[in-house]
Write a protein that binds this DNA or RNA. Structure first.
Length: 674
DNA sequence: AGAGTGGGCCTTTTT
DNA sequence: GGCCCACTCT
């Protein structure tokens, strides 16, 4: 491999701003300051196995700072993270460490980086630079259109719906398997439909291209295509990214791993950081073998282990260490606690979900009394509906809580409606947005929306892009709505006063149509209008329309929440969250609830060993979120239809724990206290 | 062709 | 509780 690109002559030693030796432990220091065998900054491939609470973020942050301090241009560093929040947080911390400007560092999720690269090069793939991003709902509904168009008789034989198809295609993309294989391995009951399912995929692809739209997976696929097929562009980025750092590597899937390899293959300064014990996204195609086999894929890789835990008291950490032991495939590690003291975790069998809820509510109040802030308390569970009873109990007792919910802020109907007005103004080929808006008109459903698109599309993709205020294809009943919408659309596109900013456009949408629509349609119109105003102010932070709209599609709920909700109300609250969404976070007191077989591990994950192992990793993630106190609870009885109801057994993950790790609390005997 | 209503179904995790 | 579907009315 030629190294003639490498531009960092060894500088004469100079004053560093950070005392790395002092601020890092030995293991972190070794990873942060790693150099190549020749002593140069070309460290080559590195695998950093960082256990829970071991300062993984700190290590990455300092590594970036170290590189910059040693003369690496920020623009030549690529930092890939699982969420944008993580990227932002790390860059913010680097900024705090160094006096220089590091805004040129490329940081974000795979989808974001893909998006960023594609915006500049989409033309090579037949897309315009202002392509629309389809979220999962958009993809599913476009697929439903394709099914309808293909005239598949969905009644004669049960044919998968758009959302299921989207899932199948997505798995195929993310794991780089053929549709047939995905069907055979995960959807065998649809195997006989492989033919039409594959045909539909082609139709779907064409429709996306025509609409100048990419779904989530396209952001990865097309980016990879760019690197593999467009040598010139690929080489430019390969050349640019002298250092590639990847966070949460255990959760990457095949296509992401390939993308990383494709980007880093020139300079090979690839540092991947992760913890195989915390790989919990296999259902999304993640493959923890990416991290396990990294040393084989990169034989020259150096391996660093970071095993000092700063987060949890020893009793919690010991429990966690033993909890994960039953998994056969993992890097051996032994996390060591820095902290001292602390209480043993509790195991609390409860009569049923109501008693479980009462216990938690009660204990939360006591913790509050002991001076633990509500913000330092979290309740974690396997699936959202496990927390239903708890939500009711907390509400009854006026204990404030927030849920990192399944529904994202940006997925709510009124937010998406508003965004569609902006999208169609920007991308006149955006069929999905047009139809969504059309269906807002009274008297227009799917059929009429289809018809309108056929008639109207040539007009808006024409020279001016303006809409006539009346049109023969518009039903009489909808004429008034149409007039408003047409004027509104033309107004949004009007550039006589210069380009409009997103917030300005949102205001126009509200004032000229949508506010009125909300009032008629929803009983909580005011709340929704307020949401849309929030959206407008949120848009202010983005310099361009494309960036704002991309963010809407790509932000996770956690990030959305930070951006919009927290500022609204600074109150204290406990956090209710799935284990998945709790990843990377920590609280003083953590309750893990619903720990019976069938809930956690969740029933249908148990058909195979891999499934059980992933559930165990999930349990490991859950317990390692706790700093000081850990409560594990489960109901002995569940009232439910079907075979999941009735008397419950404690989770196998609890049963397999040596008893020395916890103290069992019987609620009956302690009723007076708890 | 659309909108509104009632009954039966099912509840994982998400960029 | 929420979603989907079938049914009925306009």
């Amino acid at each position: 491999m030629t190294q003639e690109y490498i531009l960092h002559p060894s500088h004469a030693p100079r004053e560093l701003h950070i005392d790395y030796r002092k601020e890092l432990n030995d293991q972190q220091y070794a990873a942060v300051t790693a150099r190549g065998a020749d002593g140069s900054l070309n460290s080559g491939p590195m695998l950093v196995i960082a256990g829970a609470g071991s300062g993984k973020t700190r290590t990455l942050t300092y590594r970036v700072a170290w590189l910059v301090e040693h003369g690496i241009e920020p623009s030549r560093i690529l930092l890939l993270t699982f969420t944008n929040k993580a990227a932002k947080e790390m860059l913010r911390r680097v900024e705090g460490l160094l006096p220089m400007d590091i805004s040129q560092i490329w940081g974000g999720t795979f989808h974001h980086i893909g998006n960023r690269i594609l915006r500049r090069n989409a033309k090579l793939l037949g897309y315009g630079p202002d392509f629309t991003i389809l979220d999962r709902e958009d993809s599913a509904s476009l697929l439903n259109d394709c099914i309808a168009e293909a005239k598949i008789d969905t009644k004669a034989e049960r044919f998968p719906k758009g959302d299921v198809l989207a899932e199948i295609y997505s798995l195929a993309v993310n794991t780089e398997r053929s549709v047939e294989r995905v069907l055979a391995e995960q959807y065998d009951y649809f195997s006989h439909l492989a033919g039409p399912i594959k045909t539909l995929r082609d139709v779907y692809r064409e429709r996306k291209l025509k609409a100048n739209a990419m779904d989530y997976d396209d952001l990865l696929v097309n980016c990879l295509r760019l690197f593999q097929e467009e040598k010139e562009v690929g080489d430019r980025y390969r050349e640019q990214f002298l250092y590639v750092l990847v966070d949460e590597y255990q959760d990457t899937n095949k296509i992401q791993a390939d993308l990383i390899d494709a980007i880093a293959m020139l300079h090979r300064n690839l540092m991947v950081v992760g913890d195989d014990a915390q790989s919990i996204y296999s259902w999304r195609g993640a493959n923890y073998r990416n991290i396990l086999n990294f040393p084989e894929r990169y034989p020259s890789a150096t391996v660093h282990k970071i095993e000092v835990n700063y987060r949890s008291v020893p009793a919690i950490l010991n429990l966690a260490n033993d909890a994960i032991k039953a998994n056969p495939n993992q890097f051996a590690k032994n996390l060591q606690a820095v902290r001292k003291g602390g209480a043993k975790p509790w195991l609390i069998p409860c009569a049923d979900a109501n008693q479980q809820s009462q216990f938690i509510a009660q204990r939360v109040l006591e913790l509050r009394g002991e001076g633990v802030e509500l913000n330092e308390i979290a309740v974690l569970y396997r699936a959202h509906f496990h927390a239903m009873e708890l939500q009711m109990e907390l509400t009854r007792r006026n204990i404030p809580y927030v849920i990192t919910s399944g529904l994202r802020f940006f997925e709510q109907a009124h937010i998406k409606d508003t965004a569609c007005f902006l999208k169609i103004a920007l991308n006149p080929h955006d069929e999905m947005s047009f139809k969504r808006i059309a269906k807002l008109m009274t008297g227009v459903g799917a059929a009429t929306a289809d018809k309108l698109w056929v008639k109207i599309h040539p007009i808006i993709s024409g020279l001016t892009g303006d809409l006539p205020t009346s049109h023969p294809s518009v039903p009489k009943k909808s004429a008034a709505d149409w007039k408003q919408i047409a004027k509104l659309h033309n107004n949004l596109r009007d550039k006589s006063d210069g380009d409009k900013h997103a917030d300005e456009m949102i205001e126009i949408v509200l004032e000229n149509f949508y506010s009125g629509y909300l009032k008629v349609k929803y009983d909580n119109a005011r709340v929704r209008e307020e949401d849309i105003n929030q959206l407008a102010s949120f848009s202010l932070q983005f310099p361009t329309m494309e960036e704002f709209l991309s963010q809407l599609a790509l932000l996770t709920n956690l990030e959305a929440e930070d951006a919009t909700l927290i500022s609204a109300d600074e109150r204290e609250f406990i956090r209710l969250s799935t284990v998945h969404q709790a990843k990377g976070q920590e609280w003083k007191a953590v309750f893990v609830i619903g720990l019976c077989d069938g809930m956690f591990p969740l029933g249908r994950t148990l058909d195979n060993m891999e499934g059980v192992e992933e559930e165990r990793r999930l349990f490991y993630v859950a317990v390692t979120r706790a700093k000081d106190e850990l409560y594990m609870t489960y109901p002995l009885y569940r009232q439910m239809g079907g075979d999941a109801g009735g008397f419950q057994r404690a989770s196998r993950f609890v049963v397999e724990l040596p008893k020395m790790h916890y103290q069992e609390l019987s609620l009956r005997n302690n009723a007076a206290h708890w």
